[in-house]
Amino acid sequence: MSILVDKSTRVVVQGITGSEGSFHAKACMEYGTRVVAGVTPGKGGQTFDGAVPVYNRVIDARDKEGANAACIFVPAAFAADAIIEAVDAELDLVVCITEGVPVLDMVRVKKYLSGKKTVLIGPNCPGIISPGKCKIGIMPGRIHTPGPVGLISRSGTLTYEAVNQMSLLGIGQSTCIGIGGDQIVGTSYVDLLQRFNNDAETEAVVIIGEIGGTAEEEAADYIKETMDKPVVGFIAGQTAPPGRRMGHAGAIIAGGKGTAAEKMAAWEQAGIHVQSNPAKIGETVAQVLGKS
């Protein structure tokens, strides 16, 4: 088992004819992902890489090729529209890699998502991978190995670092998800923790947080009350300087939350195995799983 994706996931790549989209669509196909269609408005009828049909609309990719997941590489100015199109086509999963989507665009998207069945991962994220089964995103497939650990992270390369540490210790992953570093993202830690908690193959979960916002604190509440699998956590930004703040309004809305120390304390209280050394995330997972 895995969460959100598996061998049967059929992917449409939005923006497949662009340089980013075509490069990563090929890399996903090489990994074994079933990329069944591409979408670039105005380029419908072309064929990508000799085998993948390109359509003008996501709904055509769904109806003609059975696509049930989308991966978005379109430029930031058009990303919100691309997400809305994929949600309108009632796909199960949308992964938006695009970086730099305006916050107020995401406010609209987030509203549109509520009550819909589509799960949005990102934007500004590396994507999702279930090792050996399906990769939708830009992460290096090679460092991942199949196994029992789920991983959720707000960061990109730091996620690769954690995965690599685990793989080198012989600990594989069930599914790894980068939820994105933006202020507003489609899916929070809590929703994914729930899915991992219900996934028979996942034995433990690693969560990697960052300073700012309150998503980590919300995750702590869920873990404390509901999660019955062990969780290992790391928060990046313990040494980040205070300031770079959003004036008074930011401070008011955060209610004083957001520093690494506060987040780590909240996680420890929730029973998370908090590691303060980013080089020892893998080792901590090994200890928790009784493998060291």
């Binding site: 390369t157 730091l158 670092e161 570093g181 960052e210 040494t239 080089a279």
Partner: peptide
């Protein structure tokens, strides 16, 4: 780039890993 007060110059790819690198330097 954000300037800080220490003596180890750091060059990293990715914001999360960059912050984690600062953290380990301090550790």
């Amino acid at each position: 780039y954000i300037k800080l007060d220490g003596n180890v110059g750091c060059m990293v790819n990715g914001a999360g890993l960059a912050m984690a690198t600062m953290d380990i330097v301090k550790l």
